[in-house]
Amino acid sequence: MTMPEITADEQSDLARALLDALNPLATAIRARATGQPEHRMWDAEPVDVALGVLAAWRVVDAEVKRLTEIAAGTAGSYGASYEQLGAAWGITRQGARKKWPDAVTRPSTAEAPVALELFGGEAVLTPDRATGHWTWTAHAADGSCGASAPEAASPTREEAAAYAGAYLREHVAPAG
């Protein structure tokens, strides 16, 4: 997955949006640091104002890094490889592994099927050792049987459990 470069207009729009978002943060940080009211933030020596803006960018940088880690982890939880993460970020597979060491989880060979009893029925969640994804089969209280399609395997056990639980809830025993 190669990401196209942004256009000059898009870069200009992005810079404007970031500066618009940064201004209130820089003002608040500077006001707290100096004890001055926010409306007086810009009435300081230019070096102090510039340092206040720099401090605000540090906060933004930390937040971008945090959100980037979340995005990489989310992509990894849905099956993205380090090669794909690296391509999206413009770095190598090894660089992505170093940047986000916990983003891609390897399937555990110790994972075992899990049984659930819900709504009077039972479901079994089964890991696919090759992909790390999970499938489910269910015997519902109304006597019906259901299963996830192999191509619809879930990236996590919890997601497979949610689908199996939804199936069992839809197929409760008739009131009688």
Rank of each mutant, 00 (worst) to 15 (best):
V47T: 09
S12T: 13
A162S: 08
Q84L: 11
T27P: 04
P113W: 06
L22A: 11
S144C: 07
T2K: 08
E170C: 04
R16Q: 14
I6G: 11
Y167H: 09
Q94E: 15
A28N: 12
G95Q: 07
A161L: 07
A44W: 01
R157S: 06
A8L: 14
A161Y: 05
L54R: 09
C145T: 09
V124S: 04
G90R: 02
D102W: 02
E117V: 09
L25N: 01
A62F: 07
A80I: 00
E117M: 07
L54N: 09
A152V: 04
D61M: 03
T105N: 12
R93V: 03
A33N: 10
K98A: 15
A28P: 05
L125E: 03
E159V: 10
A21Y: 07
A17P: 04
D142A: 15
V64L: 15
G52R: 01
A50K: 05
D142C: 14
A21V: 06
P24A: 12
W89D: 06
S81H: 09
A140V: 01
P113C: 11
T137C: 01
A88P: 00
A28Y: 05
Q11C: 15
R16A: 15
S12A: 15
A44C: 14
R93M: 12
E69L: 06
R169K: 12
